[in-house]
Design a protein around this nucleic acid. Sequence first.
RNA 1: CGGGGUGUAGCGCAGCCUGGCUAGCGCAUCUGGUUUGGGACCAGAGGGUCGCACGUUCGAAUCGUGUCACCCCGACCA
Length: 577
Amino acid sequence: MRMSQLVGKRTKETPKDAQTQSHIFLIRGGYARPVSTGIYSLLPLAKRITQKIEKIIREEMNRIEGQEVLMPVVLPRELWEESGRYQSVGPELLRFKDRNGKEMLLGMTHEEAVVHLARSEVNSYKQMPFMLYQIQTKYRDEARPRAGLIRVREFTMKDAYSFHTSDECLKKYYDRAHAAYVRIFERLGMKNVVSIESDTGMMGGAVSHEFMAVSDCGEDTIFVCSGCDYKANREVAKTKIAFASDTANPLEKVHTPNQKTIEEVAKFLGIKTSETGKAVFYTDEDGKLYFVVIRGDIEVNETKLRNHLKLRELKFANDEQIRSIGAVPGYASPLQLNSAKVRIIVDPSVTQSSNLVVGANEADYHYKGFNFARDLQPGSKMIDVVDIAAARNDDPCPVCSQPLKEERGIEVGNIFQLGTKYSLSMNCTYLDQNGKSHPMIMGCYGIGVGRSMAAVIEQSNDKYGPIWPLEIAPYHVHICALNLNEGAVKETAENLYQALLGKGVEVLYDDRNEKAGSAFNDADLIGVPYRVILSPKNLAENLAELKARDGSINEKVPLTQLQDRLMNLLNSKGKQA
RNA sequence: CGGGGUGUAGCGCAGCCUGGCUAGCGCAUCUGGUUUGGGACCAGAGGGUCGCACGUUCGAAUCGUGUCACCCCGACCA
């Protein structure tokens, strides 16, 4: 490709709205352009990269017996009614009517569509297991797109669905899919991707993993154990905190005038916040109240709480709602609380700690010496004891007790064991050896293509631009010809360009006669792995300059050896992958 | 949906407070020339419904009201 013809302007200035490296470089380097909120056009450079990403994904999906299909983006309402998601999903599902008034939607994921296929095409255990996948446009009407291609409304996704006759078979395949994902992200050149336990969210199902590209700009908080393999999303992360268990002291009422927050009370009484228990009130969509008790220094993990209560939405209750169940805001207490009026959820950090300071349910008073087992007479009240604690940096790992480290991650892929959630509701069955009908057992597996491209930039860049791994780089060799007015430079550059093209090398040739600085800055923004610089100075000695974008190579090569040297580099890298 | 912010040339911005004649600057683009190793220089040129609507006024980019769009933070997120 001649750079003079390459569509996609590079800019010197950073777009004012871009905050993350990938967003900045995707715009500055002429890879992508916004069309509307969270909706982008990909320019030639980005398209070349995503094509390579898709190729790698295809190869690995085919390797685990995946069969590629293509399902429609536009789907009819009825199909989604069958699974119940037409109602349950909410406004990020874009719904509309066609000219006949028929209600349609834009697919945001394709469980319904693939089940529609599977249930009519496969009826026998003899054809199972099988996996179908596609690489296709998804639309999600996101509340808040952000960070360039990291979170968008329209995007390309690889989604795969497997169908099995037993849980064992699903699990075995799930592990193969997991291994395929590890290979994919390795081949994409992502430096730090971890697979973590995750919340199954609206997908349903029991087991799921998210593949997180570790990066400061990631939207998810994850915990990675420093001592073992435990890794989890904050939404589900567990900890093994040692709680201070001691002989129970008697309950003692103490005067705590105007000390409402945990910090105030602890400071006032000269104790640590971990020696207190705090009350947090939540309310659901119907206005029903939930009283949550947790140790004072630990935050409530609302995802855990929501999952336990099987609720979609939880909000903090206001003071009025708190009073309505007979509690005093700021001094609320699990003691003397009418469990008929409110559901009580207690974290183990409270049930297993001794002698906590808790509210007295009376303005300006707290109790010292609260002990759950003694003071709440468990069994006499409806109380759920369940882990709802939010993990913190350096909390002990639930497996090995070594400190957990908090990181940020970009979710580039996820895999779910769906089980029969969709096959049951949508009647997707097969006949077994005895002619008996069973629902198919499903797994599903997704990878965001554009997001993966952005994640690679986040993990691989310098202040000048992206540093593309060879496997997905838009081009492999970038020829910078300095001073094309000199006949020798022009001739050498053109010859080299044609020769490399002839050898099947993907080569970008800067034929624009730009100043060196300008050419180099553009080259940095395009991030091609190998750069050949041709200049009058070096050509006089029959030398060319060869540089690797990542700085690993910077040498002068005799012109006669240049092509061999390049081919060696390209081939050896190719073999490694 | 809540909080904050911004809309002036392709991009980045100034001008607005205190209304005024032809709306300005840098980058980018085009022409000619000089240059050529980390974003050159000179001379010239093109490019604008000042987000939109209504209002105030002799006169609105500037003041008022409304509206739309976009961005950031939060909530939400297979």
